[in-house]
């Protein structure tokens, strides 16, 4: 079937199998691999994206359900353009670091949440990060001045196995403070 979804402001259309999940559409059709498969059972939150501004687990939504709607992924968070790294086969993991400027992103163009995550060490392997960022973005839009307990509650559908969560919670509070101005 034909599905068209506006992703990060750009319409993406594809002729896809009905079974295609929104996660698969975003990754395989739109080529944006920031949303990740951590369980495919709606439990880990690695696949979280915003659908019409509301957070969803894209592994538990059909692309067909999102047809004609707007999706925001982690790639849409920073204001600068981010480019995917083309040739991973020649790079080791830590070698794929490219300076901010080379990606058309400087620190100023990162979203305050991204910036705070970076400063507070709120990511290690980074597999959960995209989902955390989008969940928090939607949450802070609703609750701009949360308590630590509220942040923890807001993240109850997102697992992280690396950080023990404290740095993520701290980063969320820091970003909230900056976003309130």
């Amino acid at each position: 079937m034909k599905v068209e979804i506006t992703i990060n402001g750009r319409p993406v259309a594809g002729e896809v199998d009905e079974r295609t999940l929104l996660l698969e559409f975003v990754r395989d059709v739109a080529g944006l691999t920031g949303a990740r498969n951590g369980c495919l059972e709606a439990r880990c939150g690695c696949c979280s994206v915003l659908l019409d501004g509301q957070v969803v687990k894209s592994c538990n939504v059909l692309a067909a359900q999102a047809d004609g709607r707007e999706v925001e992924t982690v790639e849409g968070l920073a204001t600068g353009d981010t480019t995917t790294i083309e040739d991973p086969t020649t790079e080791g993991s830590v070698g794929t670091y490219v300076p901010l400027s080379a990606r058309g992103v400087d620190e100023g163009s990162l979203h305050p949440l991204q910036q705070a995550f970076h400063e507070r060490g709120a990511l290690q392997c980074g597999y959960c990060t995209a989902g955390m960022l989008l969940t928090l973005k939607e949450f802070l839009a609703r609750v701009p001045d949360p308590t630590e307990a509220e942040v923890r509650e807001a993240l109850r559908g997102n697992l992280c196995r690396c950080t023990g969560y404290q740095s993520i919670v701290d980063a969320a509070l820091l970003a909230a403070e900056r976003m309130r101005g």
Binding site: E75, H118, G126
Partner: peptide
Amino acid sequence: RSLPRREDLALLTGTAVFVDDMR
């Protein structure tokens, strides 16, 4: 020194490549 990590940017912007991201 607590330097923020150099790995972070690719991960924060969703451009880091994991095995499942290779095409």
